[in-house]
């Protein structure tokens, strides 16, 4: 068995990350309590749903037009939580999708959330909408929903492209409280400019752990933080060594 050329550094990093990952998952499984810092974007979800309940307006939730990736998987955790809260508070939730496969999974997640909340009859299939996989048609459909149904909260969590700016600004113009989050860092400035709360960088990916407080997932989040320290260590060590003429770290990551 041979390694693919140019992947040695990545393999070592992945092995180290996996070891740390299992170390913390094991710790949480044994009952050690680990704490995650407060993330304003997630704390604002209840505020947004409560506001919609008071105003009698629906919550709007969308994933963006990007493909089914880690952003969408992380967003599913948030969707499950938000749908459950909407079910309990008798507030409508409208979900718009650009991908057929995400549509199918979304229907199941929202239906399950209503069942778990003890209100299966309150689930409205017509509120989980496939709008279009084409970016401009997707944006137009959501702008129409904003104008006709005037959601009180607009939650945009997933792999966003250029639609991020238009949707966030249109949501702002109808007075919706907005939470935006994406792992596509190029879109983050648009969310910061137009949303009330923004999940930056890896914050979206800790959704399951933060919202659900599932111990095993909290352990995984600790591993992510240690991964950051490991990366920082490599950057600092690589910089110092390279400055002193030793390219060990640089070569290791290139191999």
């Amino acid at each position: 068995m041979q390694l693919v050329a140019g992947t040695l550094g990545k393999v070592w990093f992945l092995i180290a990350f996996t070891v740390i990952f299992w170390f913390f998952v094991d710790r949480t499984a044994k009952g050690h309590k680990l704490v995650i810092r407060r993330i304003a974007g997630f704390d604002a979800l209840d505020e947004a749903i409560g506001r919609c309940t008071e105003m009698g307006r629906p919550v709007h939730y969308t994933f963006g037009v990007g493909e089914l990736d880690a952003n969408v998987l992380a967003s599913f955790d948030v969707l499950g939580y938000v749908s459950g809260q909407c079910a309990r508070m008798d507030t409508d939730i409208i979900i718009t999708n650009a991908l057929g496969e995400v549509q199918m999974m979304t229907e199941e997640i929202v239906r399950s959330a209503y069942v778990h909340a003890g209100k299966p009859d309150a689930y409205k299939a017509d509120n989980v909408r496939f709008v279009s996989s084409v970016q401009t048609a997707y944006m137009s459909a959501i702008l129409g929903i904003f104008q006709r149904e005037r959601p009180g909260a607009n939650l945009m969590l997933g792999p966003f492209f250029a639609e991020s700016m238009m949707l966030a600004e249109a949501g702002q113009q109808i007075g919706a409280i907005q939470v935006g989050g994406t792992g596509r860092t190029i879109q983050v400035p648009f969310f910061i400019a137009a949303c009330d709360y923004t999940l930056i960088g890896d914050e979206l990916f800790v959704a399951g752990a933060y919202i659900g407080r599932k111990p095993l997932q909290v352990g995984a989040v600790y591993a992510q933080d240690f991964g950051k320290w490991l990366t920082l260590l490599l950057i600092v060590a690589g910089t110092i060594l390279a400055t002193s003429g030793n390219n060990f770290v640089t070569d290791l990551m290139k191999k």
């Binding site: 992945l14 990350f17 990952f21 990736d69 880690a70 992380a74 792992g183 596509r184 860092t185 930056i200 960088g201 890896d202 914050e203 979206l204 990916f205 800790v206 995984a220 989040v221 591993a223 992510q224 991964g227 950051k228 990366t231």
Partner: peptide, 8 residues
């Protein structure tokens, strides 16, 4: 940060 989140 995002890349580590995706790996996680």
């Amino acid at each position: 940060g995002a890349a580590l989140g995706i790996i996680g």
